[in-house]
Computed example of a mutant assay.
Amino acid sequence: MKDLLRTHTSLQEGIEKLLNLQSKIENDASSKYLAMASWLDRNGFENTAGYMYKQAEEERTHFLKVFKYITEIGGIAITPVVAEVKQEFSSFKEVFEIALQNEIAVTHAVNKIIAKCRLENDYATEEFMMWYVKEQREEEINARRALELFDLIDEDSASGKFELDKQIAKIGSVEA
């Protein structure tokens, strides 16, 4: 039956598998940012929690974009299982260290899809994925900027935590 379905799409099976993996990665990223937002809220970082809630929603949008692309091109989109995510963090800074590592992992996954597209001459999917290349560049810049703020502002003082909470919330916005 799967061979019959394959005749209705130009999407190569290997690329479809990578796209389904990407949708899972994006869905997991949304869950991770949601857990980070909850931790930040519980620990008094209200502004930064708002930033992370927006990040969680953005990652969900990224997930749906890939998921819908698979179906639109005639592939089989697999609904990802929600993975268990870390709920507790040792520090405010650790949240952003993990966020940056997660974004770097997403960038590598995007690059892997594009490399496979080039190998398979799938120009449509490569073009679709180029949006993610630009997006990942921005996501990594924002995560690095947050970590740079920890080098500039003392996290150990109450006023430093207050200032970090204000400044991180501005990252990626027009006023930043």
Rank of each mutant, 00 (worst) to 15 (best):
N20M: 08
N27V: 07
E88Q: 09
F67V: 01
R137Q: 14
G50D: 15
R60A: 13
K93H: 11
E59A: 06
F96E: 02
G74C: 10
S30W: 01
A105S: 12
E88I: 03
A56H: 12
Q55V: 13
S38L: 14
V85A: 04
K134S: 12
A124H: 06
A99D: 13
T125I: 09
A109M: 04
E120R: 01
F89M: 10
E138L: 02
E97C: 06
V133A: 02
R137T: 15
S23P: 00
A29H: 05
N27L: 11
K68V: 11
L21N: 13
F128E: 01
E94D: 07
D122K: 00
H108W: 08
I98S: 02
A49G: 14
K65H: 14
V66C: 07
V133N: 06
L34E: 09
T107D: 12
Q101L: 07
A56D: 12
F63Q: 15
A35D: 03
R42T: 01
E58L: 10
R137M: 14
W131R: 02
Y33I: 00
A35E: 02
F89D: 11
F96K: 03
V106Q: 00
T125E: 00
F96M: 00
V106K: 01
Q87C: 00
A37C: 08
I78F: 14
C117S: 05
L64N: 12
